[in-house]
Write a protein that binds this DNA or RNA. Sequence first.
RNA 1: GCUCGGAUGGUGGAAUUGGUAGACACGUUGGACUUAAAAUCCAAUGACCAUUGCGGUCGUGCGGGUUCAAGUCCCGCUCCGAGUACCA
Length: 895
Amino acid sequence: MVYDFRNIEKKWQKYWRDNKTFKADSNSEKPKYYVLDMFPYPSGSGLHVGHPLGYIASDIVSRFKRSKGFNVLHPMGFDSFGLPAEQYAVKTGQHPKKTTEENVVRFKNQLHKLGLSFDWDREIKTSDSSYYRWTQWIFLKLYNSYYDHGLNKAQPIEKLKIPTNLNENEIESFIDSKRLVYVDTIDVNWCEELGTVLANEEVIGGLSERGGFPVIKRPMKQWVMRITDYADRLLDDLIELDWPESIKLSQKNWIGKSEGAEIKFSINNDFIDVFTTRPDTIFGATYLVLAPEHPLINNITTDKYRKSIIEYVEQASKKSDLERQENEKNKTGVFTGSYALNPISNEKIPVWISDYVLFSYGTGAIMAVPAHDERDNEFAKKFNLKIIKVIDGGNKDECYTGNGPIINCGEYDGIDNIKFKSIVVEKLESKNKGTKTTNYKLRDWIFTRQRYWGEPIPIIYDGNKKKALEFDDLPLELPEVESYLPTNDGLSPLARNNDWVNISINGKNYLRETNTMPQWAGSCWYFLRFIDPDNNNEFANKDLIRYWMPVDLYIGGAEHAVLHLLYARFWHKVLFDLDYVNTCEPFKKLINQGMILGNSAFAHRIKNTNNFISFDMIKDEKTQKIHVDISFVDEKNRLNIERLKQNNPEFKDVNFLKGESFYVSRDIEKMSKSKFNVINPDQICDKYGADTLRMYEMFLGPIEQAKPWNTSGISGVKNFLNKFWRLFYKGNGWAVTDRKANKSELKILHETIKKITNDVENFSFNTCVSSLMICVNELTRLDCRSYEILSPLTILLSPFAPHLAEEIWEHLGNKKSIINEPFPISNPSYLIEETKNYPVSFNGKLRFTIFLSLNLEIEEIKKAIMEDERTLVFLNGLEPKRWIIIPNKIINIVF
RNA sequence: GCUCGGAUGGUGGAAUUGGUAGACACGUUGGACUUAAAAUCCAAUGACCAUUGCGGUCGUGCGGGUUCAAGUCCCGCUCCGAGUACCA
């Protein structure tokens, strides 16, 4: 009887579905455990082998925790609003809802095949109006709240104290200026191609994150969320989180809190405000630099320099951030012709403009201290500006950024520079020339998109007057439109539906807000909806939230290190302040799975020709790498030209210059449909089975590490599962016996229990697989068929290969699913092993180091040594004077 | 440029975080079983030298250092990957 994974997997997937085996119970006496995956965007290309990596890991933890007696919530849903569906709709006219639903069905089928233990009764789609009704509701909660800096929390807008001397319009704009969501006219990243505005965070190197289209600055009215009010709390609360340090660090850097001072430099009758973190170096400030966007530039530029300034400003405005960065080595800038007054040293210093100063950070102007700042130093050297050293340290002509005593500052010389910081700030404050300030890199979150496929914003307008919709008006459903393109003047496609835009309430006419929310909105709170997905009266019941929150384990890709994780934390804190949730942080433990990379294949095209050349024949030819589908390439990197031409018409008229075969080159890259390197899990499932795929993905390497996909080792995992099966079946017969297990069999079992328990708790799934392999190899060698061993072993296997484990469990005579069977506990009495002894050195005193091959408690080590004969031979009547014991490692015994 | 990671056999990766480097798996080679193949099992497999036998030397990207002991810690490099907003 062979292990028939096809029927077994089908059988148990049906069983789990029919019996709702993984249904989470909210009225349980057991301790709870909430395991969450970052839910996927249901893209058109379906699931690839990289997606399940995190899902398999979280599934192992879920099954393990169930087995350990926890009440586990392990839900799944779809982040189903998003740009690709809309772009597809623009292209084909198909309603995004239709394509999204088709994709969801496909994703679900693929996920089901993997045997993941999701509670599908809790499935969420962010584009369902029953879901986004509550996204809109949270939006209104933010709209109707303000941040009370005294209480350091958000408060309902009714509690806001309004100054008494205001008229009606002023009251309104005062309230608006305090709301957590407000409208502002700002220079935004306008992407012509997408017809939409992107958040700063979504622009990468001057191009849109999705699609890679150019982005330019353009002023526009936008809804903005006041996330900056939460900067301090978002920063401070990071400390307690059990997250990877690298992710915490990137959030910290993103928030970018820095203490410093704003200093006023007088110029003509005006002044330039600069922000600096180094007020202690003010005597070394030999010039000022303004960002090219700075509004004062026009006023202070003298006629002599006006032409070059105008040229420079124009050039800078065309440059993308990426180009500004590329010019790193060769700084540019021009002199304005004006001089400003250093408020401390009273020196006249020149004012320059340069694009190495960013308008969006600080005040958009800096005081340059070339002696103590690398960038200023480079700039000063290039333009022959004065360099004055004011802190002692470093080599003579080098830029020194460290600390030390003050020099070249007259009466202040000798003072420690850190102390000098506060002296300077005090002096500036007394002269009204500056203040101590804290600056953040974090900027408010631009929340509107000129898109169709998103949540409509529940606001209506009476002229310029805004009116929020009432709770009863929600959900505000997405209207139908004729075309999914934005209007020519940049309005959302929703503006095309006049019947929807114009509404009348109690005989009064209003216009609707036509913008929609960004894709992040739905994912900011979905983990709360999973707790109570069908609730029509609340976004989730408070008692249920109290029971299930926080999320105990959150697994997802590192690409969400900042944006999603920061936005979700922000909304959660608002809901916490308004007393809707009971935890101030949503995610207790975070694991980032590494990307699974694909092995792309490239054919080489000779530049500016239609000739492709075999990789082994390239000599001096300049070539361009073109992706070809990896399914047309064999393991020796030979391309099947016929099949390529059949499937990709663009290669139809191409010449292939080749010897015996046409060779391609290979490269490791991110797995993506556009790179033709996608491996689909369905293929692997069909060929090897879900259990093999699950174990193999875990066996590939540490969960957090990026790794290329290759299937060369998959047969090892398949062999392991077959071996496992053969422990129970010999030939065609059931081989399990009632024989008592012997000592060595028990030792193998209990060692494995200990290793697996430890490794699952430390998320080291690759070593779990190894441990199971070793265990099965040894039991096979011993021909162990004892029920006493094989029954607990099946439970050990069940988180990793659940289908096989269930099947065997049933054959062992159990009527119920293995899912809630208690996880075996290792018995340390089976673990004591012989000790190995190595004399290490004679160092005045006789000294032995005793290595122990197992982790034991100190007392156990002592006991083992005293009882073991070979150890006693070493001790040989000598009474140890001193034990140097490092737990679990070594014992040095000094005589 | 900056920040954070990483580098271990032919390959993916282990190494209880300072204690026998290379677990486990793939691949390769040889053998058993078979008419044959598949499957399965057994053996070998870091490199070099020695091989009639014990064995020896070198080995965790490179160069130093600390230590009885370094893949692991410290200092200085090289290369690769990821992120990035020149953050003053």
